[in-house]
Design a protein around this nucleic acid. Sequence first.
RNA 1: GCCCCCAUCGUCUAGCGGCCUAGGACACCACCCUCUCAAGGUGGCGGCACGGGUUCGAAUCCCGUUGGGGGUGCCA
Length: 469
Amino acid sequence: MVDVPRLRFAPSPTGYLHVGSARAVLFNWLVARRTGGEMLLRIEDTDAERNRPELTDNILETMEWLGLGWDGEPVHQSRRLDLYRDAAEKLLAAGRAYWCDCTAEQVQARAKERGGPPGYDGFCRERGLERGPNTALRFRTPDEGTTSFDDIVRGHVAFENAVLEDFVLLRSSGMPTFLLPNVVDDADMGITHVVRGEEHVNGTPKYLLLSEALGLGYRPVFAHLPVLVNAQRKKLSKRRDSVSVADFRAEGYLPEAMVNYLALLGWGPPDGVEIRPLSEIVELFRLEDVNSSPAFFDVKKLQAFNAEYIRALDADTFVERARPHFTHGDATTEVLRPMAELVRDRVRLLSEVEPMVAFLRDDEVQVDDDSWQKGVVKLGDRGVAMLEAAHRRLGSCEWDRDAIEAALREAAVEAGFVNPEGHAQMSKAQSPVRVATTGRSVGPPLFESLVVLGRERTLDRLEKARERL
RNA sequence: GCCCCCAUCGUCUAGCGGCCUAGGACACCACCCUCUCAAGGUGGCGGCACGGGUUCGAAUCCCGUUGGGGGUGCCA
């Protein structure tokens, strides 16, 4: 039988999918795709206290949005509890586990008393306790020897068994904790490559010891990915940092930009070409090339990628993809369509699209104070003259892009915006007209904007601005 | 405290003993283009943490120091 690589992503439904997990999904997915293997999905919901079942949907939906699907049906640990209990019984029967009734307080108190390292001290190892209402089952770690493994990204990693404390297998509630189901399922699901975050490195010897004690004869290949950190170089945390992939989606990031960017955290293509389709990344990606040092999640660079991906969209696709971000669906779509390319080349996020064309949609224009001061008031008499000249000339010209440009250039000359060569100085002259009609000092090209705005509203807004001065 | 890991421009990375006067990308700065803003073009700023080895030769290998991170839960 040929060994088909089999990977897995194993989230616990205690939070939304964040960028760190998304990167883990991606790398697992890439390996599966590249090697012709599969990536399975396992929901690690053994913590009844913290589980939020509805979050599973968010995680799955977000993975689909990213375009990183999984193979087969998701496995839920909460539906396989018998498997873990059987495994626990086996360990107990083999003398590799024992019952313990110590409370967390007692464990801490003893650690403090002896002045040694924190953690469980093996107090109940020889007490011969029976299962009771307040007993947890602990794994008895070896006192001697070392446990080591070869990590694809980190090389050889070794631990003295003596530093491994006797960890909990079954809570007093009877529910298993992380490690036991993790090992049992990986073996049961035939996982060949365990690709996960660096935070799991220290748990790996326990994982291996468990596998051995269970007589599973199971030993996957490990690859521990570097953590993603914030600007303070701390591991990204859901509490401190805004890292929910669903939030990025809501802000108007494209999944292809997100995935492309994520691939570059801890890995780089050999030819240095950073922006490229996922299909190419699949071809190039190798776990052996993954870094082992922490990577900063740089939103600025993500935005740059996003802008580039947006610019690569054709006009219709751009409108369709921006549409879900509109608060006034059809109305915004209508005014955006004729301006699509011009707007598309100016936004970094899809959420920026609607504000950029709102002046075309709404009856009244909201004039930004700062823009008003800098773009109109500051120009003094010439600003007034420009508004008046523009109003007059736009009142009688044809209504197309070139005619509007010609009219405004003439208005500029009339209002005194002339350069040494005697030509209209449009960079300055356009500003009062722009602010009066669009409400802002920056935005899509003015002439095209006015075409869509229409003569009536344009003249009306120029007049209102004039009156306001 | 103990255990494990990490260390190339501000950031993400290329580099796997000579091709390195260290390449690219993002960010930043300047100029060009230009109806604003973008985009684009050109140029610039900027890095092998430090100290020892090994070697004819080290960003690349080894050791130490320093700095950073992760873990140390009846969370995952």
